[in-house]
Computed example of a mutant assay.
Amino acid sequence: MKTLVVLVLLSLAVVCLTSDVSEPAGDNPAQEGLFVEKVQASEVVRQKRATGQLSMSQLESLREVCELNLGCEDMMDTHGIIAAYTAYYGPIPYDY
């Protein structure tokens, strides 16, 4: 059994050593799409939210600011957090 394993490993080594390795790694079309620039990768991975949607943590932070002002808190209960925050504090500081 050990002899068989040694023969398989030796034959694998012979195949690897005799294979055509003259092609540089940079010219290999299979390697072309493996690595991308950091900016390009972040554009691909970045998730786009629908217009007008804030994350739960962003809404919670707006809510915390608005709760400190009684008028803003009352308006938040009737008109919503975005309308109340905009009315009392101006534009929302997040891109949405």
Rank of each mutant, 00 (worst) to 15 (best):
T3H: 07
R49G: 04
L7S: 10
A50C: 09
V15L: 14
A41W: 13
Y89R: 01
K38D: 14
V39S: 13
C72F: 06
L10R: 03
Y88D: 04
E73P: 00
L12R: 08
V39K: 13
F35P: 00
V65K: 13
L7R: 11
G26L: 12
Y96P: 00
S61N: 09
V44I: 15
K38R: 15
E64Y: 02
T78L: 01
Y89S: 04
S11H: 04
Q40R: 08
G71K: 12
N69V: 01
D95V: 09
V6C: 02
Q47A: 12
D77E: 10
N28I: 01
E43R: 14
E37H: 13
H79Q: 15
A30T: 09
E43N: 14
L4P: 01
P91L: 11
M1L: 10
R63D: 11
Y96G: 02
A13L: 10
E37C: 11
E23F: 03
V21D: 10
V14A: 15
L70H: 04
L7M: 06
Y96S: 05
G90K: 03
V15I: 14
D77P: 00
P93C: 06
N28S: 02
A41T: 05
V44W: 12
M1C: 06
F35L: 13
D95L: 13
A87W: 03
C72M: 05
P24L: 08
P29Y: 04
V36S: 14
H79K: 14
Q53E: 05
M56D: 09
N69P: 00
V5C: 07
V44N: 10
G80D: 06
L7A: 15
C66H: 01
A83W: 02
R46A: 15
F35D: 03
F35V: 14
A30H: 08
D74W: 04
T78K: 07
G71V: 03
T86G: 09
V45M: 11
L12F: 15
S61P: 00
V14K: 10
V8P: 00
E60V: 02
